[in-house]
């Protein structure tokens, strides 16, 4: 029985082995700052599946750290031991909104940005029974009386989109923060609110089924899955906003390891099977390299800062 004890101790010691030359030689943890089953989580799981093709010997473990708008997860990535065995995902606008709101214990410099993978453009949706058919109606109605519009929490991509829209058109919404897209969907489908700012993937099925109406997509071009929905710019309101989901590593990881990881992200981003799986699962790819994504994030942060300074939350 002493032997069992010994065996257990050896087992315990063997686990957190140290990083050595042939990276990766132990499982790589991917921190997903959201609950299991969401679209960020699904992205990570699809990524792992595709990554195995290029790194057949590597093992990946997903660690879901949900809640607080991703902040807990982002902090965990920034704080992780920089040995290359912990990487993570970020999503916008939350990742910069927390910095702007001065509650984050990280900055963009805490991360090495590996690249972006997915996006999810913002949309404006109204209940199916609503008389509002397009953005013009919408702005008119909003000027006539204060419309109740649901967003997913303060500082989220929906919230920034709504603020951008307010800034451009001069209307003022009666904003209703919710605890997530599920609530927004239920409120739109049940007709409890006048409109909702949310992501395309969250409502496209309901739009197709005629249970809700998407009146505008806040992107540069129309979406392939909903070609009938006009962009906001087409309707004369040039507002664009999208949510991105990319990969990062702690900033201090060894340069050689980072180069390997960057390469992997790019390979997966352009993998045909990965693309096919994304299309099937209604995830919209937006491949960006590390430097590109970093620039995007910095711009976004400046933009969010502007809204925060006007009206802090």
């Amino acid at each position: 029985m002493r032997k069992i004890m010994l065996l257990l101790i050896v087992l315990a010691l063997a686990f957190p082995g140290t990083a050595l030359a042939a990276y990766p030689e132990k499982p790589i943890t991917i921190i997903v700052p959201s609950k299991a089953g969401g679209s960020t989580d699904t992205t990570a799981r699809l990524f792992i599946k595709a990554a195995k093709k290029y790194w057949p010997k590597a093992e990946f473990v997903i660690k879901n750290i949900g809640g607080s708008g991703g902040q807990k997860g982002f902090e965990e990535i920034a704080r992780a031991r920089p040995d290359g065995y912990t990487i993570g995902m970020i999503f916008t606008t939350q990742v910069v909104a927390h910095i702007v709101a001065k509650r984050a214990r990280y900055t963009l410099d805490s991360f090495h940005i590996m690249g972006n993978a997915m996006q999810d453009p913002l949309i404006i949706a109204v209940p199916a029974k609503s008389p509002i058919k397009n953005l013009k109606d919408f702005v008119q109605a909003a000027k006539a009386k204060s419309l109740t519009a649901a967003v997913n929490g303060i500082g989220s991509d929906d919230f920034i989109a709504a603020k951008k829209f307010e800034l451009l058109t001069g209307v003022k919404f009666n904003l209703m923060p919710t605890r997530g897209s599920t609530e927004q969907k239920a409120m739109i489908l049940g007709g409890h609110i006048d409109a909702s700012f949310m992501n395309l993937s969250q409502l496209q099925a309901q739009h197709k089924a005629g249970k809700a109406r998407i009146i505008a997509i806040l992107a540069d071009k129309r979406s392939e899955i909903l070609p009938d929905v006009k962009t906001a710019a087409e309707q004369g309101y040039p507002v664009s906003m999208t949510a991105t989901r990319g990969f990062v590593a702690p900033a201090k990881v060894d340069k050689k390891i980072l180069a390997k990881l960057d390469d992997l992200v790019q390979k997966v981003n352009h993998d045909a099977d990965f693309a096919a799986a994304c299309d099937k699962g209604v995830l919209f790819r937006l491949p960006m390299t590390g430097p590109e994504y970093r620039q995007y994030l910095e711009q976004l942060q400046a933009e969010v800062q502007k809204f925060y300074d006007q009206n802090p939350w």
């Binding site: 089953g37 969401g38 599920t182 309901q206 197709k208 089924a209 799986a277 099937k280 699962g281 209604v282």
Partner: peptide, 15 residues
Amino acid sequence: AALLGGLLIHGLIPG
């Protein structure tokens, strides 16, 4: 919600 994620990934879109 997690189950829904599983449905979506196979193109089984609720409705």
